[in-house]
Amino acid sequence: PDDEWKERLREAEEKNNWKLFEELARKAGVSEEKIEEWKRRWS
């Protein structure tokens, strides 16, 4: 299951679909801290 969400995150990233990325990350149990960090790195 871990690989599956990583794959989906990669797809979201490729499409630059931040909303989807964020949603998937939350569902995968990624901390808000980590998500914010990704946001900063991404923008």
Results as ranks from 00 to 15, higher is better:
residue 28 A to T: 02
residue 18 W to N: 01
residue 37 E to R: 02
residue 1 P to M: 13
residue 33 E to H: 06
residue 19 K to D: 13
residue 14 E to S: 12
residue 35 I to H: 00
residue 33 E to C: 09
residue 17 N to F: 14
residue 21 F to L: 06
residue 15 K to L: 10
residue 25 A to V: 05
residue 32 E to S: 07
residue 6 K to S: 12
residue 20 L to Q: 10
residue 8 R to L: 14
residue 20 L to I: 10
residue 36 E to G: 03
residue 40 R to H: 11
residue 28 A to L: 13
residue 33 E to Y: 05
residue 8 R to K: 11
residue 1 P to C: 15
residue 22 E to P: 00
residue 14 E to H: 14
residue 20 L to F: 11
residue 38 W to I: 14
residue 2 D to F: 15
residue 15 K to W: 05
residue 3 D to M: 10
residue 42 W to I: 05
residue 26 R to C: 04
residue 41 R to W: 15
residue 34 K to T: 14
residue 35 I to K: 00
residue 41 R to D: 13
residue 10 R to P: 03
residue 13 E to Q: 15
residue 40 R to V: 08
residue 4 E to Y: 15
residue 43 S to H: 15
residue 22 E to S: 04
residue 35 I to W: 02
residue 2 D to I: 11
residue 30 V to S: 01
residue 42 W to A: 03
residue 30 V to Q: 01
residue 18 W to H: 02
residue 16 N to E: 07
residue 32 E to N: 06
residue 21 F to H: 01
residue 14 E to V: 12
residue 21 F to Y: 03
residue 20 L to M: 11
residue 13 E to R: 15
residue 37 E to I: 02
residue 30 V to R: 00
residue 5 W to M: 07
residue 13 E to K: 15
residue 27 K to G: 06
residue 5 W to K: 04
residue 39 K to A: 04
residue 37 E to Q: 03
residue 11 E to T: 08
residue 43 S to E: 13
residue 24 L to T: 06
residue 29 G to T: 00
residue 34 K to Q: 15
residue 38 W to S: 03
residue 8 R to F: 09
residue 23 E to K: 05
residue 21 F to E: 00
residue 9 L to S: 04
residue 1 P to W: 13
residue 18 W to E: 01
residue 35 I to Q: 00
residue 43 S to W: 15
residue 34 K to C: 15
residue 33 E to T: 06
residue 22 E to H: 03
residue 25 A to C: 08
residue 1 P to T: 12
residue 14 E to M: 14
residue 1 P to A: 10
residue 29 G to N: 03
residue 40 R to M: 10
residue 39 K to T: 02
residue 18 W to S: 01
residue 31 S to I: 02
residue 22 E to G: 01
residue 17 N to I: 12
residue 31 S to Y: 00
residue 23 E to L: 05
residue 42 W to F: 12
residue 41 R to I: 14
residue 31 S to R: 03
residue 6 K to M: 14
residue 31 S to G: 04
residue 30 V to L: 11
residue 37 E to K: 02
residue 24 L to S: 03
residue 35 I to G: 00
residue 5 W to D: 05
residue 2 D to G: 12
residue 12 A to R: 03
residue 11 E to A: 10
residue 23 E to A: 07
residue 42 W to M: 08
residue 34 K to I: 14
residue 7 E to V: 10
residue 6 K to V: 13
residue 19 K to I: 09
residue 42 W to V: 04
residue 15 K to P: 03
residue 32 E to D: 08
residue 33 E to S: 10
residue 12 A to F: 11
residue 37 E to D: 09
residue 4 E to L: 12
residue 38 W to P: 00
residue 16 N to H: 14
residue 4 E to Q: 12
residue 9 L to M: 13
residue 15 K to E: 10
residue 7 E to I: 08
residue 14 E to Q: 12
residue 16 N to Q: 09
residue 17 N to Q: 08
residue 8 R to I: 13
residue 7 E to W: 05
residue 5 W to A: 05
residue 14 E to T: 09
residue 42 W to L: 06
residue 10 R to A: 08
residue 11 E to H: 08
residue 31 S to E: 03
residue 33 E to N: 05
residue 1 P to R: 11
residue 4 E to R: 10
residue 28 A to V: 05
residue 15 K to G: 09
residue 6 K to Q: 13
residue 2 D to K: 10
residue 2 D to S: 12
residue 41 R to K: 13
residue 36 E to H: 04
residue 27 K to F: 07
residue 11 E to N: 07
residue 25 A to T: 01
residue 25 A to W: 06
residue 27 K to D: 04
residue 13 E to C: 15
residue 43 S to V: 13
residue 30 V to W: 15
residue 27 K to A: 15
residue 35 I to C: 01
residue 6 K to R: 12
residue 19 K to W: 10
residue 36 E to Q: 10
residue 18 W to Q: 01
residue 22 E to K: 01
residue 43 S to K: 13
residue 37 E to G: 01
residue 16 N to G: 14
residue 42 W to K: 02
residue 21 F to R: 00
residue 24 L to G: 02
residue 11 E to R: 07
residue 10 R to S: 07
residue 20 L to P: 04
residue 32 E to P: 08
residue 27 K to S: 11
residue 34 K to A: 11
residue 7 E to Y: 03
residue 33 E to I: 05
residue 11 E to I: 08
residue 20 L to Y: 09
residue 26 R to N: 01
residue 21 F to Q: 00
residue 40 R to D: 15
residue 8 R to P: 05
residue 7 E to Q: 12
residue 36 E to M: 08
residue 13 E to Y: 15
residue 41 R to G: 08
residue 12 A to V: 07
residue 11 E to W: 10
residue 30 V to F: 15
residue 35 I to P: 00
residue 31 S to K: 03
residue 38 W to R: 03
residue 10 R to V: 06
residue 26 R to F: 03
residue 13 E to H: 15
residue 17 N to Y: 07
residue 27 K to T: 05
residue 42 W to R: 02
residue 35 I to V: 02
residue 19 K to A: 14
residue 3 D to S: 11
residue 37 E to L: 02
residue 17 N to C: 15
residue 36 E to F: 05
residue 30 V to P: 00
residue 11 E to P: 04
residue 26 R to A: 02
residue 35 I to L: 09
residue 13 E to N: 10
residue 29 G to P: 00
residue 33 E to A: 12
residue 10 R to Q: 09
residue 3 D to R: 09
residue 9 L to C: 15
residue 13 E to P: 06
residue 1 P to I: 14
residue 25 A to F: 05
residue 16 N to A: 06
residue 19 K to F: 10
residue 2 D to A: 08
residue 39 K to P: 00
residue 10 R to E: 06
residue 25 A to I: 06
residue 23 E to T: 06
residue 22 E to L: 10
residue 14 E to P: 04
residue 23 E to Y: 09
residue 18 W to L: 04
residue 19 K to T: 12
residue 5 W to S: 06
residue 35 I to M: 02
residue 14 E to Y: 09
residue 2 D to N: 11
residue 10 R to W: 08
residue 2 D to W: 13
residue 5 W to C: 13
residue 32 E to A: 08
residue 24 L to Q: 05
residue 16 N to I: 07
residue 20 L to D: 13
residue 9 L to K: 03
residue 14 E to D: 10
residue 43 S to A: 13
residue 29 G to K: 01
residue 39 K to N: 03
residue 31 S to T: 06
residue 11 E to Y: 05
residue 16 N to F: 12
residue 17 N to E: 08
residue 18 W to V: 02
residue 38 W to E: 07
residue 40 R to L: 09
residue 23 E to Q: 07
residue 29 G to R: 01
residue 42 W to C: 14
residue 4 E to T: 11
residue 18 W to M: 05
residue 14 E to N: 11
residue 24 L to C: 13
residue 37 E to F: 02
residue 34 K to F: 11
residue 25 A to H: 01
residue 20 L to K: 07
residue 20 L to N: 06
residue 39 K to L: 10
residue 6 K to N: 09
residue 25 A to R: 00
